[in-house]
Amino acid sequence: MSDDVVTPEGGPPPAGGEGNGWRKEYWRKNLRLMVVLLIVWFAVSFGCGIIFVEQLNQVVIAGFPLGFWFAQQGSIYTFIVLILVYAVRMDRLDREYGVHERNHDGGLT
Protein backbone atom coordinates (compact mmCIF):
# COMPACT_ATOMS: atom_id res chain seq x y z
CA MET A 1 0.00 0.00 0.00
CA SER A 2 1.60 3.23 -1.06
CA ASP A 3 1.26 6.24 1.12
CA ASP A 4 2.62 9.00 -1.02
CA VAL A 5 -0.34 11.31 -0.64
CA VAL A 6 1.04 14.63 0.48
CA THR A 7 0.37 15.36 4.13
CA PRO A 8 -1.91 18.39 4.24
CA GLU A 9 -0.48 21.57 5.61
CA GLY A 10 -1.67 22.98 8.90
CA GLY A 11 -1.44 19.85 11.05
CA PRO A 12 -0.72 20.18 14.75
CA PRO A 13 2.25 22.44 15.54
CA PRO A 14 5.47 20.53 14.98
CA ALA A 15 7.62 20.16 18.04
CA GLY A 16 10.70 22.29 18.40
CA GLY A 17 10.33 23.78 14.94
CA GLU A 18 11.88 20.71 13.29
CA GLY A 19 9.15 20.45 10.70
CA ASN A 20 7.18 17.29 10.14
CA GLY A 21 10.08 15.16 8.92
CA TRP A 22 9.99 13.10 12.11
CA ARG A 23 6.48 11.98 11.25
CA LYS A 24 7.54 10.37 8.00
CA GLU A 25 10.51 8.78 9.71
CA TYR A 26 8.43 7.42 12.59
CA TRP A 27 5.84 6.05 10.22
CA ARG A 28 8.46 4.49 7.94
CA LYS A 29 10.09 2.71 10.88
CA ASN A 30 6.70 1.49 12.06
CA LEU A 31 5.90 0.12 8.59
CA ARG A 32 9.28 -1.57 8.27
CA LEU A 33 8.85 -3.35 11.62
CA MET A 34 5.32 -4.34 10.64
CA VAL A 35 6.34 -5.79 7.27
CA VAL A 36 9.20 -7.83 8.77
CA LEU A 37 6.92 -9.27 11.45
CA LEU A 38 4.21 -10.08 8.89
CA ILE A 39 6.72 -11.91 6.70
CA VAL A 40 7.64 -14.10 9.66
CA TRP A 41 3.93 -14.53 10.44
CA PHE A 42 3.27 -15.81 6.93
CA ALA A 43 6.40 -17.95 6.64
CA VAL A 44 5.80 -19.84 9.88
CA SER A 45 2.04 -20.39 9.70
CA PHE A 46 1.33 -20.71 5.99
CA GLY A 47 4.87 -21.76 5.02
CA CYS A 48 5.79 -24.36 7.65
CA GLY A 49 2.22 -25.25 8.67
CA ILE A 50 0.58 -25.61 5.24
CA ILE A 51 2.77 -25.21 2.14
CA PHE A 52 5.78 -27.27 3.27
CA VAL A 53 4.02 -29.35 5.93
CA GLU A 54 4.52 -32.67 4.14
CA GLN A 55 8.26 -32.16 3.64
CA LEU A 56 8.71 -31.09 7.28
CA ASN A 57 6.73 -34.11 8.46
CA GLN A 58 9.67 -36.30 7.40
CA VAL A 59 11.47 -35.01 10.50
CA VAL A 60 10.10 -36.29 13.81
CA ILE A 61 11.05 -34.62 17.11
CA ALA A 62 9.80 -35.90 20.49
CA GLY A 63 7.09 -37.84 18.72
CA PHE A 64 5.88 -34.86 16.70
CA PRO A 65 6.23 -34.82 12.91
CA LEU A 66 7.70 -31.31 12.48
CA GLY A 67 5.14 -29.96 9.99
CA PHE A 68 2.30 -31.21 12.19
CA TRP A 69 3.95 -29.53 15.19
CA PHE A 70 4.20 -26.18 13.41
CA ALA A 71 0.57 -26.43 12.30
CA GLN A 72 -0.81 -27.29 15.75
CA GLN A 73 1.70 -25.77 18.21
CA GLY A 74 4.69 -23.89 16.81
CA SER A 75 2.80 -21.29 14.82
CA ILE A 76 0.83 -20.22 17.92
CA TYR A 77 4.01 -19.73 19.97
CA THR A 78 5.46 -17.73 17.08
CA PHE A 79 2.40 -15.44 17.01
CA ILE A 80 2.92 -14.61 20.69
CA VAL A 81 6.58 -13.77 20.12
CA LEU A 82 5.67 -11.56 17.15
CA ILE A 83 3.22 -9.44 19.15
CA LEU A 84 5.70 -9.24 22.04
CA VAL A 85 8.44 -7.96 19.73
CA TYR A 86 5.99 -5.47 18.20
CA ALA A 87 4.82 -4.10 21.56
CA VAL A 88 8.39 -3.74 22.90
CA ARG A 89 9.78 -2.17 19.72
CA MET A 90 6.86 0.23 19.39
CA ASP A 91 7.27 1.35 23.00
CA ARG A 92 10.90 2.13 22.18
CA LEU A 93 9.98 3.89 18.92
CA ASP A 94 7.29 6.00 20.64
CA ARG A 95 9.77 7.17 23.26
CA GLU A 96 12.46 7.83 20.68
CA TYR A 97 10.11 10.18 18.82
CA GLY A 98 8.49 11.60 21.94
CA VAL A 99 4.98 10.43 21.04
CA HIS A 100 4.58 8.00 23.95
CA GLU A 101 1.61 8.43 26.24
CA ARG A 102 2.14 9.90 29.64
CA ASN A 103 -0.59 7.94 31.49
CA HIS A 104 1.48 4.83 32.02
CA ASP A 105 -0.48 1.71 31.27
CA GLY A 106 0.06 -1.67 29.79
CA GLY A 107 2.76 -4.21 29.67
CA LEU A 108 4.75 -5.60 32.45
CA THR A 109 5.61 -2.30 34.04
Binding site: A15, N30, Y97, H100, E101
Partner: peptide, 13 residues
Protein backbone atom coordinates in the same frame (compact mmCIF):
# COMPACT_ATOMS: atom_id res chain seq x y z
CA UNK B 1 -2.53 11.19 9.95
CA UNK B 2 -3.47 11.78 13.59
CA UNK B 3 -4.35 8.19 14.46
CA UNK B 4 -0.85 7.09 13.45
CA UNK B 5 0.85 8.72 16.46
CA UNK B 6 -0.09 7.60 19.97
CA UNK B 7 0.06 11.17 21.34
CA UNK B 8 1.16 14.74 20.62
CA UNK B 9 4.90 15.11 20.36
CA UNK B 10 6.59 16.09 23.59
CA UNK B 11 7.65 19.76 23.42
CA UNK B 12 10.83 19.20 25.37
CA UNK B 13 11.99 16.40 23.12
Amino acid sequence: EQIRYPSEREETH
